[in-house]
Design a protein around this nucleic acid. Structure first.
Length: 750
DNA sequence: AGCACGCCGACT
DNA sequence: GTCGGCGTGCTC
């Protein structure tokens, strides 16, 4: 395009060709495009360095992009080329981040532009930041002849004589004048305006605050971490310690060491929304709040944080997985807390596991990464065993409280514990234990990882089951709202009076328990108790959560019913009994990590019992008491569980002893989908050390109105499934109505 | 991801 | 005869 008006200077003096460079734009495209370098005021082209952030025309839009490494392709015809529109004042992306983007892209099989888009997720941060126009007094200036200081003008002058600057609107309002009065004063030179470039820095954490006294074991671990931080070399270390062993205090020492080195720290947490307690602890330790990074941030705060991170003005960032790809100025330490948490796996857009990518990021930055957990993922433990990761073990519980006793309540029909009076979900044994706990003035908690009142509603007359119209899933009754809800797509409908199938009235019955139903039963059984419900839909705001936690901590509530949100690190010092209503719940569904997740969750829930001077007691209601998960929970033997789980996985060549990639094919037309899957199946390659299963209907065969099928690539550890997937899928072209996504290292089997 | 181009049904 | 549905393909 020659519309730029630079016809005379468009060509380089020597080659007579305009200079070009490669720019990766934030489109789902996996290679950079070529662009003509921009022209300076002197008509000369301005050379740009890799990493510089630019705005470029793409089609008929203008998009951000990044100047990429490597030479432009001189074969692209000149008439196709467009000129770079502008260069952002933001700091160029470092080589280490560009490498990381390339790595994530090739590992996840996502287009490079999609990965880059996550790094440039704040378009406002790339623009030139002007700031607010502020007015202040010109000191010592006398009004010119004929310029009268009226009462209105005087009010303005009185206000602007203070030290700060005034925004036009505020000043006019406060002085009760119109903006023309202010403009007039500016014209007369009595006041002047300036642009206040906002300060994007976060207050530096104070490192002079003395941390808590560490035990000998904690001190040793902390010293090890601090030494790693000072070395500036990549290493991965598992910080392994039970709940209450002080993992946070230990890694805070490493955080402090990094700050003293002048380097930034990233702390990844699984659920930032639920971590107000974490933030409080940080503030206590370091005197200031850290920079936060998660989806709830306001646009203004996002911009400020992005800039501060890239300019090294935020020394500690706490965030969800997306904080991993921010443009750090000098990252010196990454901490992944609760590293076993499944929510670190992102499953939309770019499918990546933040824990594993954190290790790669640390490698790119030559810094240590700390994985902290009381129940490490099997993957992590195996990496410790084969020497890829180091491990620091924190001894025992802090403050002397022992681990709680775990007992199993056998729910099988012939067992006496099951007997109870009337219908209900709480066995006689559990009821008795709750009674005793309440009578002793202590707190009890009932755990059931299922929201709502009942997971299934059916018609007593015709047997019709209330199902989501968009998903293969039952609708869950939420009695508090008299509604039926789909927990997969959010579909929501009023609980009908009559059966939608046979029109019989008042025949719909709730089947199975959800937490709301447990609350109902608990209130009936223990009318004297103060029962409270803690679930994600009752903790809608941080304030509501704080309120709830407070009412438990000061014992207004003595019988708590909760879903997995109660497992997340709250301290309830008077809680001595935990009853798990259905310990087997997570074991179903053919998920390869079902046992592991159940163990982790129940272990964590069990850890809620008995933290202060009182010993805790945990009762697990199970129909499968001989299951390894139940047996190892009872024995309190985490490593035994991991050992058994490792054996099971090794036998099935499952991760981490083999590799998996899921291919999810979806579309609105079922027969078209099946046809495509058949042609994919015909093209399945024969590869030594790998096999491809499928197509199988994905467990949620219908999700959000789309039909889904699934293939699974299983390969030996030595073979990367990425290559297989790429080669195989490239041979069968889907129609545009069919979507194919590749999920490397899948976690969710939905 | 957008956005335009392109080819078949209900309308001013 | 056109307006507009969304299927298809491209973006340096």
């Amino acid at each position: 395009m020659f519309e730029s008006g630079h016809d005379l200077t468009l060509f380089d003096q020597n080659t007579k060709k305009p200079l070009r460079c490669r720019v990766q734009v934030i489109l789902p495209i996996d290679r950079p495009y070529d662009y003509i370098l921009p022209y300076g005021p002197d008509g000369q082209q301005i050379n740009l360095e890799p990493g510089q952030i630019v705005q470029v025309p793409v089609g008929r839009r203008i998009l951000p992009g990044v100047v990429w490494d490597g030479a432009a392709d001189e074969d692209v015809p000149l008439k196709k080329l467009k000129e770079i529109i502008s260069v952002s004042e933001a700091i160029p992306l470092k080589a280490e981040l560009r490498k990381f983007v390339e790595w994530v892209s090739s590992y996840t099989l996502s287009p490079q532009g999609s990965v880059l888009k996550m790094a440039l997720s704040v378009p406002q941060a790339l623009e030139t930041i002007v700031g607010q126009k502020l007015y202040h007094l010109v000191v010592g200036r006398e009004p010119q002849e004929g310029f009268r200081i009226t009462a209105a003008r005087q009010r303005v002058l009185d206000l602007v004589s203070d030290s700060g600057g005034w925004v036009l609107g505020d000043l006019a309002k406060e002085a009760a004048v119109s903006s023309s009065v202010i403009k007039g004063l500016e014209q007369a030179g009595l006041i002047e305006s300036y642009f206040d470039r906002p300060d994007f820095s976060f207050p530096a954490p104070k490192s002079d605050i003395k941390g808590p006294e560490l035990s000998h074991g904690q001190r040793e671990a902390a010293d090890d971490l601090m030494a790693r931080v000072r070395e500036h070399v990549f290493s991965t270390v598992l910080l392994d310690g039970v709940t209450g062993s002080g993992k946070t205090e230990v890694y805070f020492e490493a955080v402090e060491a990094a700050m003293k080195e002048g380097r930034q720290v990233l702390v990844l947490l699984p659920e930032i929304a639920l971590s107000s307690q974490w933030l409080d602890r940080f503030e206590q330790r370091f005197g200031v709040a850290p920079a936060e990074w998660h989806s709830e941030l306001s646009p203004a705060l996002r911009r400020k944080t992005w800039r501060a991170v890239s300019e090294g003005k935020a020394s500690v960032v706490v965030g969800a997985r997306s904080a991993l790809i921010l443009p750090y100025d000098n990252l010196g330490l990454i901490i992944v807390d609760e590293e076993h948490e499944g929510s670190f796996k992102q499953e939309d857009g770019v499918y990546y596991h933040a824990r594993d990518m954190a290790v790669v990021r640390a490698k790119c930055c030559s810094c240590p990464v700390v994985l902290a957990s009381a129940t490490p993922a099997l993957e992590t433990m195996i990496n410790v065993q084969n020497g890829r990761y180091d491990r620091l073990i924190l001894p025992g519980r802090h403050g002397g409280a022992g681990m709680p006793d775990v007992e199993l309540i056998d729910l099988r029909f012939d067992k006496p514990e099951r007997l109870n009076t009337g219908p209900g979900w709480l066995s006689q044994a559990l009821r008795g234990a709750i009674r005793k706990t309440l009578d002793a003035g202590e707190q009890a908690m009932l755990f059931l990882n299922r929201r709502g009142y009942a997971p299934l509603t059916l018609c007593r007359t015709c047997g019709h089951r209330m199902q989501c119209p968009h998903c293969t899933a039952w609708l869950v009754e939420h009695r508090r709202f008299a509604r039926l809800q789909c927990h997969h797509c959010g579909f929501n409908t009023a609980l009908p009076n009559a059966c939608p199938s046979c029109a019989a009235e008042d025949t719909l019955v709730a089947c199975g328990p959800g937490v709301e139903r447990i609350v109902e039963e608990a209130k009936k059984l223990f009318p004297d108790a103060n029962v409270a419900l803690m679930a994600s839909d009752t903790m809608t705001s941080p304030a509501a959560t704080r309120e709830m936690v407070k009412s438990i901590q000061n014992r207004e509530v003595n019988l708590l019913v909760g879903t997995q949100v109660v497992a997340k690190g709250y301290h309830f010092p008077y809680l001595t009994l935990v009853g798990v209503v259905d310990a087997d719940l997570g074991l179903f569904g053919g998920d390869l990590r079902a046992a592991e997740r159940t163990f982790q969750l129940l272990h964590q829930v069990a850890g809620r019992a008995g933290r202060a001077e009182h010993k805790g007691r945990v009762l697990l209601q199970t129909s499968d008491p001989n299951h390894p998960v139940m047996q190892t929970l009872k024995a309190g033997d985490r490593d035994k569980f991991l050992e058994q789980e490792a054996e099971t996985r090794a036998r099935g060549h499952l991760p981490p002893f083999g590799r998996l990639a899921a291919i999810i094919v979806s579309g609105p037309d079922e027969s078209e989908l099946d046809n495509f899957c058949a042609s994919l199946a015909r093209a399945i390659p024969q590869i030594d050390g790998a096999q491809i299963l499928g197509p199988a209907p994905a467990p949620l065969a219908l999700l959000r109105g789309k039909f889904r099928r699934r293939f699974l690539i299983m390969s030996k550890r030595s073979i990367a499934p990425q290559g297989i997937a790429k080669e195989w899928l490239s041979r069968v072209k889907p129609s545009s109505r069919i979507r194919v996504v590749v999920d490397i290292d899948p976690y969710s089997f939905l």
